[in-house]
Design a protein around this nucleic acid. Structure first.
Length: 884
RNA sequence: GGAGGCUUAGCUCAGCUGGUUAGAGCGCUCGCCUCACACGCGAGAGGUCGAUGGUUCGAGUCCAUUAGUCUCCACCA
């Protein structure tokens, strides 16, 4: 047993404790046929990223669940790893190249990739180290990276097998293009922002007539690529024009007027210009009507195929087109209009829809099972409402564009031959599989980063190999992540698991919100309002940060981060520290066991602890982590420190609690035993939430009953047990507590200093209950001699009375009392008691209530009424005997 | 245009399947350096749980309507 310092200093403890855990190998997930596995795979952070509060939140939740299950005897595995994060990482390396005046093209693909790998190797361990600072109990021996050999093999296998099943295809379709990242994006990677813009009305002349059709658009530059004008087939205004044609202004191209249901007659003029290459709807309409496709905006957002406008940036082209139309008198009007603008989720650039040759995953067939498995409850969302969001997305999802025009990522395993055949293969081919020509070219593109993330729950366990890990740990149990990546990641993992493993990758998706700043704003680099978790750890300790993050919020909801709350949690850590210090200072025993004989207060605290253990387990099983944490907090601070420790002080000093003294069953020894037992159990309960301080203290405590257990983190988690249920004793002790509180309140009102210790006479019809608390009752109520009797003193002169439901207490402090005020106070209390009694009487005389409410509720109400009546009697008695 | 969240003490938030006298942290008031802790101890003040209606013996908790607010999804040019 070591001496502890007066103030807990996390910085001196955390690294040492973390090392103790890793040295002990306690984080390792060990396949044990005798145990049930519990598996969590980490949402892999970007390999070059830095830890932010979002990670801290996410990982704290996972760590709590993992530690809890591990301590409950599961073969727990929390599998860590990092993500190559294609676009994000490539952008960053390109940025650093730009500082040297270079682009990736100057280096060439191979050299550039070398640089990215260097970058990855330099920064890849940073985020991992930061996760360790948090106390994450990940199995680092199984750490993975989405581009390591195994994950790459999984990606290759999945791509090829989906291709063979016809679920991956290449096609020329309209996709979202980011001109800044110069790559295609999937629908999920486009963020929609509402912006106000101008809606222009353009006049298109009808060929061979002096009529005009007026079309509305927010993007006039796309008119350069118009290949039709559409009206509704039933629109009487335009019926006569269907089949005729328009002479497209500026381009002088003849384009047809077509009829399509897509057009809303009510909106605008009822005429819609069709730009199949640059609008998803127009693209669809174009397919139906076999319209010509003219690409007028290229990959860098410059105009092409449009004569004099060629080479202009899309926004400059807009101005030019408008000016020219104006001059021709073909610009009829413009008005304010709010519409949604798609932007790139990585760089914020406005996305350009354009047609392009890309690879896609056919989603409909994959979505079917992925929806079923959530609908039938095989996969549960916590909170449930996110299941609806998920299934709605799955039901309406469109094909997933998976090719990216990047270099950093999994290169698409497709080879093209001049004969027109595409070879897609598990092994790099050296010739065309159809014509045998060795002159084949590999596809230049890589896959969407999320394509590899989708395989994470099984690729990390060794798939496509049949590994023992995969066999034992798959499917995983809980997936913990924020609601912002349900579509990006969770949805894709579910259909991937169903397709490739024939089994959902996890049974529970535990969704949390995001952490905002103290003003409720999203934390972002541009606002500079981000809180660095490492700074918080340095200032308050990892335990305080963790506790702050998990308390005071509920699943799925956003939460605000207040540094002051960290301070409160640091104080809590310090409280535990000092309570432990107190216990150790008073300890003469060398092992942890409960005494044979228990005092009333012992039974009270043990009973409370037992209830706590049961509730915490329940809460954790239900993912109510914040609730569980708050209960432990209250127990430690209120029940254990403020009450129980205070109660033991006289006992520890040999002032009683037992008649006998010396020997094994000495009162002081028994107090020590209970103190140590409750502390140890409490530390164990708290450990998943505050792993460092609890482990540090536990290492310093004697724990003879755990000879085989070398660390708290692998000790068995407490559970509810019938053996430690003492409801009557618990209630009895609560009577004493309310008496103590009542005396303290009266003394505070009268400004009696703690040094003044008048005698105390307790009048009660439960003398045995109070007798059990006699020794320390005096201490907590600052009393001198304590007398317990059934009848009120004959002479009440000089006495002040304090009343509870169970007792009347008399203190000789009358000279401090202002009788008039006292009378007023008592009368007020009598009034309140009478009102309460009336309320309960009314309730209890309601036959419906008696008949329909459960017996336990009725019984409780009856008891409350009885208590109130006793209280009223006592108050009345006091008032009657108040000497003036 | 759909879907959902939030609205509870001055501030930020808990309150699980309806059953106390509605809780916590911070802040505030009063009194305490009481031999674990001033990162502390004791005692307080402060809320008709957004509004209206309903279900129920009983509603902050369930249902409907409504207001404010935030978010997600959506092809109306």
């Amino acid at each position: 047993m070591r001496e502890l310092e007066k103030v807990y200093d996390p910085s001196k403890v955390e690294d040492k404790i973390y090392k103790l855990w890793t040295d002990g190998g306690y984080f390792e997930g060990v396949r044990d046929p005798a145990k049930k596995p519990f598996t969590i795979v980490i949402p892999p952070p970007n390999v070059t990223g830095r830890l932010h509060l979002g990670h801290a939140f996410d990982c704290t939740l996972q760590d709590i669940l993992t530690r809890f299950k591990r301590m409950q005897g599961y073969a727990a595995l929390w599998l860590p790893g990092t993500d190559h994060a294609g676009i994000a990482t490539q952008i960053r390396v390109e940025e650093s190249l730009r500082n040297e005046g270079l682009t990736r093209h100057d280096l060439g693909r191979e050299k550039f990739l070398e640089q990215v790998w260097d970058w990855k190797n330099t920064y890849g361990s940073r985020i991992v180290d930061q996760l360790k600072k948090l106390g994450s109990s990940c199995d680092w021996s199984r750490e993975r990276f989405t581009m390591d050999e195994g994950c790459s093999a999984a990606v290759r296998e999945v791509f090829v097998s989906l291709y063979e099943k016809g679920l991956i295809y290449k096609g020329n379709r309209i996709i979202n293009w980011c001109p800044a990242c110069t790559t295609a994006l999937s629908d999920t990677e486009v963020e929609h922002e509402e912006r106000s813009s101008l809606l222009y009305h353009l006049k298109y002349p009808v060929k061979g007539s002096d009529e005009f059709l007026v079309v509305a658009t927010t993007r006039p530059e796309t008119m350069l690529g118009d290949t039709a004008v559409a009206v509704h087939p039933d629109d009487k205004r335009y019926k006569h024009l269907i089949g005729k044609s328009i002479v497209l202004p500026l381009m002088e191209r003849e384009i047809p007027i077509i009829a399509d249901d897509y057009v809303d007659m009510e909106f605008g003029t009822g005429c819609v210009k069709m730009t199949p290459c640059h609008d998803p709807n127009d693209f669809e309409v174009g397919l139906r009507h076999e319209l010509e496709q003219i690409l007028v905006i290229d990959e860098s957002a410059k105009i092409i195929n449009a004569g004099k406008y060629n080479g202009l940036d899309r926004f400059d082209a807009r101005k030019a087109v408008l000016a020219d139309l104006e001059e021709l008198g073909l610009l009829s009007s413009a008005r304010e209009h709010t519409n949604n603008v798609g932007t790139c989720y990585r760089c914020g650039t406005i996305v350009e829809p354009l047609t392009s040759e890309q690879w896609f995953v056919k989603m409909k067939p994959l979505a079917k099972e992925a929806v079923e498995v959530v609908d039938d409850g095989t996969v549960k969302f916590v909170p449930e409402r996110f299941a609806k969001i998920y299934t709605h997305w799955m039901d309406t999802v469109r094909d997933w564009c998976i090719s990216r025009q990047l270099w950093w990522g999994h290169r698409i395993p497709a080879w093209y031959c001049a004969c027109g055949h595409t070879t897609v293969s598990r092994k790099d081919p050296d010739k065309c599989e159809k014509c045998g020509s060795p002159d084949i070219q590999r596809d230049e593109d890589v896959l969407d980063t999320w394509f590899s993330s989708a395989l994470w729950p099984f690729s990390t366990l060794g798939w496509p190999e049949k590994t023992e890990d995969l066999d034992y740990f798959y499917p995983t149990d809980v997936l913990v992540t924020g609601y912002d990546i349900i579509f990006f990641w969770v949805a894709r993992m579910i259909f991937s698991g169903m397709e490739h493993m024939k089994e959902a990758p996890f049974h529970t998706v535990f969704i949390h919100g995001i952490i905002r700043d103290s003003d409720g704003r999203k934390m972002s680099k541009s606002l500079g309002n981000g809180v660095d978790p490492l700074e918080a750890i340095a200032a308050y300790g990892a335990d305080a940060l963790r506790f702050n993050i998990v308390t005071g919020n509920s699943p799925g909801n956003d939460t605000r981060f207040y540094p002051e709350r960290c301070e409160a949690m640091r104080n809590f850590a310090n409280k535990i520290w000092n309570a432990s210090r107190f216990v150790m200072m008073n300890l003469t025993i060398g092992h942890n066991e409960l005494p044979e004989k228990l005092e009333l207060e012992d039974k009270w605290i043990l009973s409370k602890l037992n209830t706590l253990a049961g509730e915490v387990c329940e809460n954790l099983d239900d993912f109510e982590l914040g609730v569980a944490a708050a209960k432990i907090y209250d127990f430690i601070w209120d029940s254990y420190c403020d009450w129980y420790i205070e109660l033991t002080k006289p006992r520890l000093q040999g002032a009683g609690g037992g008649q006998d003294s010396g020997g094994e069953d000495d009162g002081a020894i028994r107090a020590q035993k209970v103190l140590l037992y409750v502390l140890t159990e409490t530390l164990t309960l708290l450990h998943p939430f505050m792993p460092f301080i609890t482990e540090e203290i536990w290492q310093a405590l004697p724990h003879g009953e755990d000879p085989d257990v070398s660390a708290l983190m692998i000790r068995t988690y407490p559970a509810f047990t019938e053996a430690l249920c003492f409801p009557e004793d618990e209630a009895g002790f609560e009577s004493i507590m309310s008496a103590v509180r009542a005396v303290r309140a009266r003394r505070a009102e009268m400004n009696v200093p703690p040094s003044r210790k008048p005698s105390l006479t307790i009048v009660t019809d439960k003398p045995d209950v109070f007798e059990a608390g006699r020794t320390y009752l005096g201490r907590l109520a600052y009393a001198g001699e304590v007398t317990i009797q059934r009848n009120a003193p004959c002479d009440l002169s000089g006495l002040v009375s304090v009343v509870t439901g169970d007792a009347q207490l008399f203190i000789p402090l009358a000279e401090l009392v202002d009788v008039a005020k006292e009378r007023e106070r008592i009368e007020k209390e009598i009034g309140k008691a009478k009102a309460d009694i009336e309320r309960f009487e009314k309730k209890l005389s309601n036959e419906q209530f008696i008949a329909k409410a459960p017996e336990s509720v009725v019984g409780a109400e009856r008891e409350k009424l009885a208590n109130l009546r006793a209280l009223l009697g006592n108050l009345q008695f006091t008032l009657d005997n108040l000497h003036s």
